[in-house]
Each structure stands twice: as structure tokens, then as C-alpha cells.
Amino acid sequence: MFNSLGNPAVDSAAALLFADFATGHTVHLSGTAVLEWSPDGSGGDEGGTGRRVRSTSAARPTAPAHHDTHTASGPPPTAQEGLTAMNEPTPESNGRTRLAYILGVPLAPEVERQWPQMGEVVRGSKLIGEVEGNFPELTLEVGRRLRLDDDVIVVEWTCDYGDGRLYRNVTIAELRDGRAVQVTDYWGEPTSTPPWRRPLTARLDMPGDGIWKDHDHLGHH
């Protein structure tokens, strides 16, 4: 920390991960960090350095990706067993779990999925499944699907990566012979209305069971 105090001045994003090696559970803290200069010995300056890092964060508890195999009468896993279980690879999606559910149509083996926000493309249903498999905590639900002719589908849907924030997304798919061959995702990261816009806009009516779902209407797919 003290060898990298300049980092928060450049990028305030910060995160900490606490692991319980005996159970495989983790707690992920993510938020922002700000470097503050203060008189030596002031509150929070335990090291007497005249500086401290103030952080704001939100906790995200994570259950282990495995099922406990010991019984109440048996011994708990050792620390090494817990660490091994935490690092076990997540079973990969077959490429038909989330994206095909979102679209409501199967994926062609050669399908391409584009993310313009990151300048990325994933080619092939197998690789799409491998990417999906890295987000086991993600929950989602479709708000509505719009079918344009026979070769285009537009989907409005909501997801939560597990940190409680609702992303509002739009996915467009081009079809060939009833299968998706090219998909483009536009992800709507949650944000708040800046003060200057409030007099100009009204609040959107978003019932939790409508097009834009709330947490109670999301599930694992």
C-alpha cells in the first residue's frame, strides 16, 4: 500500500478480497480510495506518516463454487482442501445457457458475439460458453423480445453480476436458418441522474415485473 500511494490519485478504483480457506467462502470489497494528508498522529494515522487512505466500498460475499462434501458429524475441510476447492475451475457453459435463453433461439456453431464497449468479439458458441462460465453469480431476465422480419431479434433484458447493481441491456441478433449467427450486446451500466438533468427529465415507470426487471424477478440461466 505505502509503495503505491500515488495510484489512487490516478485511478480511485480499489478492491480487497478476503478468503476463508477452511470453507472456500470469500468477501470481495470494491469501491474507491482517496489519499488524504493529515497532521502526524491524527485519527486514522496509526503509522505516524501524516497520510492515510480513506476508502468507501460495498461488500459482496461469495459462496464457494463447490458443494460441501463433509457431513455434520464429519471433519471440516482442511485449509489446503478449502484453497484447492476455491481454485477449482468453474464448469463451463455450453454456450446455450444464457445467450440462447436471452435470444430465445439456438446459436449457430460459428456465431460471433460483439461487445463494442470493450472493442471485443468472441467467435464460436464454445468460446461464448467459456466466457459465460466465468460469471457464475450472474442472474438475469428478459423483459421483451422484438422479432423484426425473420432474420433479426432485438432483446431488452436486465442482469446483476452479484454486486446488487442492475444492468439494463439491449442485444441484437442476426439469424440464419433460425439460428443466431451474429450478436451485438449493448450493456447499460447503472448510473445516477446528474443534478443539471433533473429539471429536464421525469422518472421512468419501471415496475419490477415489467420490461426492466427488479432483483426479485432475476434468476440463474
Score class of each variant (00 low, 15 high):
Asp185Met: 13
Val121Arg: 15
Tyr186Leu: 14
Pro136Trp: 03
Glu132Asp: 15
Arg176Ile: 00
Glu156Val: 03
Pro136Tyr: 05
Val155Lys: 07
Arg145Leu: 02
Arg144Gly: 02
Leu148Ala: 10
Glu174Pro: 00
Val154Arg: 07
Glu141Lys: 05
Asp149Phe: 14
Val155Ser: 01
Asp151Glu: 10
Asp163Leu: 00
Asp151Pro: 00
Thr139Trp: 08
Leu140Val: 08
Pro190Ser: 09
Arg144Ile: 00
Arg145Lys: 10
Gly143Trp: 09
Gly164Ser: 08
Leu146Glu: 14
Ala173Arg: 09
Gln117Gly: 02
Gly133Ala: 15
Trp115Thr: 12
Val122Glu: 11
Leu148Glu: 04
Gly119Met: 04
Cys159Pro: 00
Leu148Met: 10
Arg176Val: 06
Tyr161Gln: 07
Leu146Tyr: 07
Gly133Tyr: 04
Gly143Phe: 10
Arg179Tyr: 01
Arg147Ile: 10
Tyr186Asn: 11
Val142Lys: 02
Arg165Ser: 11
Tyr167Asp: 15
Gly133Glu: 06
Arg176Tyr: 04
Ile153Gln: 04
Ala180Thr: 09
Asn134Ala: 14
Gly124Asn: 05
Val170Arg: 11
Tyr186Val: 10
Trp115Asn: 14
Leu140Asp: 03
Arg144Ala: 13
Asp150Tyr: 05
Lys126Ile: 15
Ala180Gln: 03
Leu127Asp: 13
Asp149Glu: 13
Pro116Glu: 12
Ala173Ile: 06
Val122His: 04
Arg147Asn: 12
Lys126Gly: 12
Arg176Phe: 03
Asn169Trp: 01
Ala173Phe: 07
Gln182Ser: 14
Thr171Lys: 06
Arg123Tyr: 09
Asp160Ser: 12
Gln117Asp: 10
Cys159Met: 11
Thr184Lys: 01
Leu138Phe: 08
Glu174Thr: 14
Val152Ala: 06
Thr184Asn: 06
Arg168Gly: 01
Pro136Gln: 05
Glu137Lys: 10
Val183Phe: 10
Thr139Pro: 09
Arg165Val: 01
Leu127His: 12
Tyr186Ser: 08
Gly119Gln: 06
Thr158Asp: 02
Thr158Ile: 07
Val122Leu: 15
Asp149Trp: 01
Pro136Gly: 11
Gly124Phe: 02
Trp157Phe: 15
Asp149Ala: 13
Val155Asp: 03
Gly178Asn: 03
Leu127Arg: 13
Asp160Asn: 15
Glu189Trp: 10
Gly162Gln: 06
Ile153Met: 03
Val154Gly: 01
Tyr161Ser: 10
Asp177Glu: 09
Asp151Trp: 00
Glu189Phe: 08
Trp157Met: 04
Gly178Tyr: 09
Glu156Cys: 01
Thr171Glu: 05
Arg123Gly: 09
Val152Gln: 13
Asp185Pro: 06
Gly119Glu: 07
Val170Ile: 15
Gly124Arg: 08
Lys126Gln: 12
Gly133Arg: 09
Gly124Ile: 14
Val131Ser: 10
Thr158Tyr: 02
Ile172Lys: 09
Gln117Phe: 04
Arg144Glu: 14
Val154Ser: 02
Leu127Ala: 15
Asp185Cys: 14
Glu141Val: 00
Thr139Gly: 07
Gly119Val: 11
Trp187Tyr: 11
Ala180Asn: 06
Trp157Pro: 01
Arg147Lys: 12
Pro116Asn: 01
Asp163Gln: 02
Gly164Glu: 03
Lys126Asn: 09
Arg179Lys: 08
Thr139Val: 15
